[in-house]
Design a protein around this nucleic acid. Structure first.
Lengths: 230, 230
DNA sequence: CCAAAAGTGTTGACCGTACACCCATGA
DNA sequence: TCATGGGTGTACGGTCAACACTTTTGG
C-alpha cells in the first residue's frame, strides 16, 4: 500500500470502556487494576489498543469480550480524548466507549487474568489519566440515553419488577420518583409483558415480574411512536 | 520518552470538519475540492492530520482557521470514524468535528489556496470516503443541539428578524412551524433584545431586528432555567 | 390600490405532577 | 398482629397545537 501521508505523524490509538452495571445497591462500574506501566497498580477503565486492521467498535467489542467473555454487549462510542499530556507514558489518544451489562452476567471471581472489581458510582477509587473525565461524560450519556431509548432494560435481569425498574431510574437520575406516576407512564407505553410469577425477594407481598417486549417496542417505533422514559 | 506501548500499532489520525452555514436559501455546507491523492479532484470535507503535540480540538481549530481565517468558531467533536477500509490510501481514522459559522463571515472568493464552495444541503455532490456518513451524523447533532442550546444564533447575523429565525428552525427540522406559536415561544424565553431598526429586505412592511442577549441567557441558565427551542 | 410579508390572542386537548390509602404476607 | 413494601386514581395547572384577521408599504 502506498503511503500518501508519510509527512504526517502516526499515533497510538487506545480504546477504553466504561462498563455500567446495576444491582440492589445502585449503579456501579467495572474497573481493573493496571498490571503494566505507566500507572501499574492503579485502578483504570478496561482498555486496549486499536489494531491496524480493526474498527474502534470492533476493538471495543474485543476488549469487552476479553474481560467478560460476553458477546452482544450494549456498546456505543462516547468521545475521543486527545490531550497530548493525557498519558504520561506516550502520545496516545483514546476513544472511550460506553457500555452496559447485566451485572448478573459478570462476577468478579471469573478468572481472566484481570483483576477486575465492581465499584459503586459514589465510591470510585482514584483513576489513571483522564479516566475520571470519561466516566463523567459516560454518566451524562447514560442519562440522555435512558430518557429516550429502552436501555434501562439492559441493566436489569430479563424478568424484573416495577419497583426494580423504578429504583434503576432513580439511580440514574439521582432523584426520587413518584410511584404512581412512574407506573402510569411505564404502563401506558405498553412495552412490558406482565408475567404470572411474583418476585418475593423484595417484600412479603411480592411484586409481579415483567419482561421488556422488544418486538412490540420495535413495532411501535416503526409506526412512528416516540418514548420518554423520564 | 520511553515507549511503553511499542508492541502496538501507530495509526494516522485525521480531523474532518463539517461546516454548516445558513442563508436565505437554507442550510449549506462548506466543502473543498481535494488537491492531493487519494481522491484528488473529488469534493470533500475540510480536513487535516492530528499533529503529535496537539489535541483533536486544537487540530480542528487550526484546520478551520486555515480555511476561513476565523477564530472562535462554534465547534464540537462529533464522532470518530475508523473503518479500516475507509481511506483507500492508508490506514487513517478520522475524528469528525461539527462546526457552524455565520455564512456572511466566509465567502468563496476568499483566497486561501483551497477551492472551497458552499453547497445547499439538498444538493450535495458525491463526497470522498465516508464523508457523507459524517454529514448525516452532523445533521442529527445539529437537530439535537438546536433544540436545547442557543446555537441557532451562531448561524444568523448578529441582528436578525423573527421570520429569519423561524426560517432557520424550519430548515433545521424540515417542517413548517406556526408563526404565532413560534413567536410566543421565543419571546417567552426572554432572551432576545428588540432593536429599533427594521430590516426591509424581506418585505415592504419591514420586520424588526433582534439581537440574542447572551448575558441574559447565561444568567437564566445559571439560575437553573431550561430551554426548549422546539 | 393591491400584493406580500409582518404581526397579533384565544381555546381545547393533553401531559406532568402532586397527593393518601388499602392490600398481601412473613415473621 | 404488625411492619414492610406493592399496588391503585383523581384533580389541577401548565404547555402545546390549531386557527384567521389586521397592518404596513413599495411598486
Amino acid at each position: 500500500m502506498t503511503d500518501f501521508y508519510s509527512i504526517h505523524s502516526k499515533i497510538y490509538v487506545a480504546v477504553d470502556c466504561i462498563i455500567f452495571g446495576f444491582d440492589e445497591r445502585g449503579l456501579k462500574l467495572l474497573l481493573i487494576k493496571r498490571d503494566f506501566e505507566p500507572g501499574k497498580g492503579d485502578w483504570s477503565l478496561m482498555g486496549g489498543f486499536l489494531r491496524y486492521d480493526e474498527s474502534l467498535d470492533n476493538a471495543a467489542k474485543r476488549i469487552l469480550h476479553d474481560l467478560t467473555g460476553l458477546h452482544n454487549i450494549y456498546l456505543e462510542q462516547l468521545y475521543t480524548f486527545s490531550d497530548p499530556e493525557r498519558d504520561p507514558g506516550e502520545r496516545v489518544i483514546s476513544a472511550a466507549y460506553f457500555s452496559i451489562i447485566r451485572s448478573e452476567q459478570y462476577n468478579e471471581t471469573r478468572n481472566t487474568g484481570y483483576q477486575a472489581k465492581w465499584f459503586p458510582l459514589k465510591f470510585l477509587p482514584d483513576l489513571v489519566f483522564d479516566h475520571k473525565q470519561m466516566i463523567v461524560r459516560a454518566m451524562k450519556r447514560l442519562r440522555r440515553r435512558a430518557a429516550t431509548e429502552p436501555i434501562g432494560f439492559e441493566l436489569l435481569p430479563e424478568k424484573f419488577t416495577i419497583p426494580q425498574l423504578q429504583d434503576l431510574y432513580e439511580a440514574i437520575y439521582q432523584q426520587k420518583l413518584d410511584k404512581r406516576n412512574f407506573r402510569k407512564k411505564i404502563f401506558q407505553m405498553n412495552i412490558l409483558e406482565k408475567l404470572i410469577e411474583k418476585d418475593k425477594s423484595g417484600s412479603k407481598k411480592g411484586a409481579f415480574l415483567y419482561r421488556f417486549d422488544k418486538e412490540r417496542y420495535d413495532t411501535l417505533i416503526n409506526s412512528g411512536d416516540h418514548f420518554n422514559f423520564l
